[in-house]
Design a protein around this nucleic acid. Sequence first.
DNA 1: CGGACGCTATTTGTATACAATAACGGTTTG
DNA 2: CAAACCGTTATTGTATACAAATAGCGTCCG
Lengths: 223, 223
Amino acid sequence: MSRASELAYAKIRAHLLSGAVQPNEQLTEDQLAQITGVSRTPVREAVRRLEDELLLVRSDTKRLFVADWSRDDIEEMFALRQMLECHAAERAARRLSRAKITQLEAVNHALKDAIAQTPPDVARFLEANRCFHEAIVDAADSPRLGQMLGRLVEAPVVLRTARTYSLEDLKQSARDHDELIAAFAARDPDWARAVMGSHLRRAFHTFAKSVGPKGGSAGLDQT
Amino acid sequence: MSRASELAYAKIRAHLLSGAVQPNEQLTEDQLAQITGVSRTPVREAVRRLEDELLLVRSDTKRLFVADWSRDDIEEMFALRQMLECHAAERAARRLSRAKITQLEAVNHALKDAIAQTPPDVARFLEANRCFHEAIVDAADSPRLGQMLGRLVEAPVVLRTARTYSLEDLKQSARDHDELIAAFAARDPDWARAVMGSHLRRAFHTFAKSVGPKGGSAGLDQT
DNA sequence: CGGACGCTATTTGTATACAATAACGGTTTG
DNA sequence: CAAACCGTTATTGTATACAAATAGCGTCCG
């Protein structure tokens, strides 16, 4: 994307995740234009992307509001991500070159380094983790799949989840990645799918524990 | 969407599917604005949607081209649709009210009527079919899932596929729908998923047969 | 003759002014 | 007192003018 439009997207997104706004709060394009320092034209483009990611929603009369994510919404989001990313892992297992697998190993090595710090460097962990999963989706070589997962992974919940990881959770993630790499090296799509499935399903339960039992809006509220 | 923007979307889409343009042909926003009779602003919004649906693509320098769908792209598109719509069927089986199931029966009745014509009324069949599947996705009650499937089903290939249906194919579709309804009535998610899976997979093979063996661009070319 | 440079024309990106539409509030009327 | 109507204000949608970036082409220099 172009400069102003990309800037607007980043700033609005940061604004939403910062907690400066409440779920269901109304926003106007003018406000956002002021906040971002660009005109409404690129703001509207940024807003469209954020609507795609369901961070913003429009009322029936086109007015703009901060989205409210229910616990069910989030659960469904995890389910979709699992479904799509398992598929990606399966395809990747058939396509990954030896060189790419080596790259994955390097990324997971960096991830382990981040964990080995005291205290663990969560930011670096997240970045390495993102990079690892992105490489797999890339290797799946399906534009649409990549597009869909791109939108899901942008979801705010993913960010919040990792904050609640315990050290043991982080280590288990690294082990999952190791096993994924093994499945790729063995060119075993079924194995890769299965590992990815349990990897992501565990992430969901980690999240579920951290937000407590069912019911209520678990989205962007800063409790 | 708003009037001009929606109009632009519809006109551009029709223009693409009409065969007046070739895959990889360049388009400009100005051209499209002239064709649609609105200014570039709503055209840009329409173009963004068509990019989402991968009917249009942008070069690395933001220039706009008609997308070229390879046979592999289409195969992957079917696979994704199958994955998502099976999931939708599963969720729908848990949620569909008796009243909604009755509505599905009515829709499928209309579909059978369309088939019973001599010759079969393919347009009405397609409309009823779209309606049937849409109702299921609706019942799945997952905004993201709906969004994703919306984009996939918009894909041009779906339209072309039905043109090659034989009468027997059409009848089999109706039978599949009947069985889906039975699975919903029984509130059996596994059954619903399985029926949906074979239903869509068969559609893929019908398509695959019609475009011939692997290799080459099977997308928008008007052969 | 080939390749690199720079000019021009084309195309996309952004700002702004204006039009259309929807919400709000006050008033009127049954 | 409630509900519908109308004018005002707020908000989104569209057109247009202009700015930035990019491609295409001709020329100049080696």
